[in-house]
Simulated assay, not measured.
Amino acid sequence: MTEETTYRRLREFRDTFREGIGGEPEAAHWSEISQGQILVMTSPKARHQRVAHRLRTQLEPQLAPSLALYVATDLEDPELGVLRVPDMAVVNADFEPTAADAMPPKDCHLLIEVVSLFAPANDYEGKLRDYPAMGIPHYLIVDPRDGTAVHYWAPTTRTGAPAYDNQRHYEFGDTVTVQGWKIDTATLPRYDKDASR
């Protein structure tokens, strides 16, 4: 069975979810697909969304009319067997959705993830593996746990596995520049020490 065939079966199964998981309503969860597995994620909580909102209100006015900012939208590469749901994606405004009504990686310019308290490995490991494999040119991780951000760019397979050639680390208070877009991280709140995402 090919990776794409496995992916399509998992995608069909994912799309059959009609009821919540563990007694919670369906809206409380969404799922991603990577490495032949369905990964069930809880939906972002208010602290996470507050950071995402401040990022969005800074970034969106800077985008050219040919670009759009999508929030929590499926991004899929069936050939790789990957479906991810980035917190934010800068995409071509006129992209054609995939057959499954998702964003195609070739139309993405920047993906942003806001790290959650209890699933940081998803952003720092899983997505840091999948996004360069998908050819995403820029990936920004914003981490309100410790007030840092990392910009990764220039995807490559030079080392034998998909990775980014370049990275730059920031502390909250710095201005992050990606493709000429500027994000002032001084306006981003950190999580409370006792926050539960």
Rank of each mutant, 00 (worst) to 15 (best):
H53T: 14
S116Q: 12
N166G: 06
Q179M: 14
E26V: 05
P189M: 09
S43L: 03
V114K: 04
G36M: 10
A119R: 07
M1I: 00
I21K: 02
T2Y: 01
M88F: 11
L59P: 06
I38V: 11
M103Y: 01
A133Q: 11
G135N: 13
G135R: 10
Q49P: 00
W30A: 05
V114Q: 06
G173M: 02
L83T: 04
H48A: 10
A163F: 11
R50Q: 14
E24K: 04
R11I: 02
A72D: 03
F118M: 03
R56M: 14
L128S: 08
N166V: 06
T177D: 12
G160D: 14
P137T: 05
T98E: 13
R54S: 05
E3C: 00
T157D: 15
G147W: 01
M88G: 03
Y152A: 09
S31C: 14
Y191I: 00
D15I: 02
L117F: 01
M1A: 08
A149P: 01
R8Q: 14
T177F: 01
P132K: 04
A28R: 15
A27P: 00
R84H: 05
H29A: 10
R56H: 12
A100F: 12
G160V: 12
P105R: 09
T2K: 04
H138N: 15
D87Q: 07
P104F: 13
V90H: 09
D87G: 07
W181A: 06
Y70N: 07
A46S: 06
D165S: 12
V142P: 02
M88Y: 09
V142C: 01
D130C: 14
R9M: 01
Q49G: 11
A119I: 00
A28Y: 15
A186S: 14
R56N: 05
E79M: 09
E76S: 15
K182A: 15
L69G: 09
R18P: 01
E12P: 00
W30T: 06
A161M: 15
V176M: 08
R56Y: 11
I112W: 05
E76G: 06
T2E: 08
A64C: 07
T73E: 03
R9Q: 10
D194W: 00
A195P: 00
T73A: 08
E12H: 03
T98L: 12
G173T: 01
T73S: 08
A89I: 06
D94M: 07
R50D: 15
P144G: 10
G160C: 14
A102N: 11
R47V: 03
